[in-house]
Each structure stands twice: as structure tokens, then as C-alpha cells.
Amino acid sequence: MNVTRGFAGRPRVPNAALPPGQYDAGDDWPVLSAEVTPELTPAEWSFRIDGLVEEPRSWSWEQAHELPASAYEGDIHCVTSWSKFGVRFGGVSLDTFLDVVRPHVSATHAVAYSHTGYTANLPLADLTGGRAWIAWEFDGEPLAPEHGGPARLLVPHLYFWKSAKWIAGLRILDHDEPGFWEQNGYHARGNPWEEQRYSGD
């Protein structure tokens, strides 16, 4: 341990929900997208799943909203070290979409891509089992553009760069294919509990 002279830090608040190296951002919700926030209306938004699936298909805003609603209440964790507790997102479980397209047995990974061209790669196992959503509400209000509105991917058990803003689709693959930040030195999976921030962690 390399103790910093005279460093006390914030008062210790035991918090088992805080992954290693993270701090509680409180009411703040920093915006960290690397691109220009797109002017994307719900009418222009669409979501598609293709690749290694039985029935590739796309959903319009209206079609996606006809699916059963599902909410996430819990925490989110950003690789830049902030965590945000007790957030509430509303949308549709990704399982609902995947049940329609039916991934092949050979499918292992997915690349999530945005209407901006942003990409993030994820193991398919992290997108199924009630752990991922397409989200369009935050705290009961429409998701703000700078936070990914009209709709973003939400995978809250991984670092938040995986939760692609302005989500346009998933390409289902039988191998891992690095996304935008992953090509720029970030970890392929990004599990905050194992502090998988950078490639090699």
C-alpha cells in the first residue's frame, strides 16, 4: 500500500453496493459521450436485431412501445469512477426482443450500435436473463438526448459505456468484436465488481 501523505479522503460511508474504486456521485449524472449529441426524434428512432438470429427484425418507436413494459431500479457505474444509486429506468426487457428474433445456438456475443455510429461489444449472456433493457424513461420522464434519448441500451451490471446511447440495434455474432471504446484501450467486458476498466485489467 502506497499511502499518500496527509490524504484523509471523504468520510467513510460503508456501502457494500459501491464497486471497488468507485465513488457515489449523489444527484449528479455526468455526461461523457465522445460524440455530438444527435437530434433524433422518436419518429426517426428504430431498433433492429440481426446477425445470427432466426428472424432478423426492426421495431419502430410505436412497435417497441407495444411490447410489455419493464423497469430497472438500482445502480449504475461509470468507468470514470462515479456510481449513481437508486436510479429508475423504464422501457422493455431485451429478453422480449430476443425472444422474437431467436438467436442461433452458435451465438455468443453481440455488437450494440447507435444511431451515431457508436458501438459496444457484449457477451450475449450479459444481455439475457433480465439484466438488459431498451430504456426510454428515466425517473418517469422521457430520457434526455444527452443521456441517450429517445432510447438507449441499459446493461447496469457492466460499466456504463456498454449501455450504448441512441441505440439503433444489436448484431448477434459467434465471436467477440471490439466496439468503440474497446478499440481505444478499454476492457472487453467491463465488470465493475472486478474493476475491468482497461484492456489487461
Binding site: S58, Y113, T116, G117, A168, G179, N184
Partner: peptide, 10 residues
């Protein structure tokens, strides 16, 4: 789907 921009440059 083709993104309207080519943002995700390396």
C-alpha cells in the same frame, strides 16, 4: 441499418 454518421472511427 447504416448509421447517418461515421462517428465510430478508430
Amino acid at each position: 441499418f447504416t448509421p447517418p454518421t461515421r462517428f465510430a472511427v478508430p
